[in-house]
Design a protein around this nucleic acid. Structure first.
Length: 167
DNA sequence: GCCAACGTTGGC
DNA sequence: GCCAACGTTGGC
């Protein structure tokens, strides 16, 4: 009998600009689900395609706002599939080069809101946490809009917040 | 394939 | 609005 070992769930952090799409906007969607589309960076595209799996958990992070930080948790409810917003002329994520080929090279996943923290876990507070010193998010010049989170970091951050489960 | 110019991200 | 970091583009 061959033992098939299920890969451990992974943890991620996904950034969004709340003035465009906030955690609460996600929660307001039917089923609390939205396609996480508009990623236009190859490194991130490859992660969405190859590494982000059904059931993985995600910190939802607000950037470019008065208090940047982690606001809630989501779950991957659909694995990577073509991001067709690249072909949609009316989309803010329209990609002319892709549209000319009629084929989107970009990938999205579906994310479902799972819980909100009572207070934002602010970036400035995360920076004070020694156990998080290796986090991608805290690296100088870190710009990846989707990034892996180590299980220890995930647990540590959970211990910093007051999570209200929602879904 | 090098690399300068340019564009974008995102905290501050 | 500034600017550091980094990705992309395009001339050569």
């Amino acid at each position: 009998m061959v033992k098939v070992q299920k890969a451990a769930s992974r943890y991620w952090l996904m950034k969004t600009e709340p003035h465009t799409f906030s955690y609460d906007d996600l929660h307001a969607r039917p089923g609390h689900i939205t396609p996480w589309d508009g990623v236009r960076n190859y490194q991130v595209r490859n992660m969405l395609r190859d590494q982000v799996k059904l059931g993985d958990l995600v910190f939802i992070y607000h950037s470019s706002c008065p208090e940047p930080g982690i606001v809630g948790i989501g779950r991957v409810v659909r694995e990577g599939y073509p991001d067709l917003s690249a072909l949609d002329k009316k989309s803010p994520y329209y990609d002319e080069k892709a549209a000319k080929k009629g084929l989107s090279p970009w990938i999205c996943v579906d994310v479902q809101a799972r819980g909100r923290f009572a207070q934002t876990i602010a970036l400035k507070d995360l920076r004070q946490e020694a156990p998080l010193s290796d986090m991608e998010l805290l690296r100088r010049g870190s710009r990846l809009s989707v990034q892996p989170v180590q299980p220890e970091a995930w647990r540590h951050i959970l211990s910093l917040g007051d999570l209200k489960a929602e879904a």
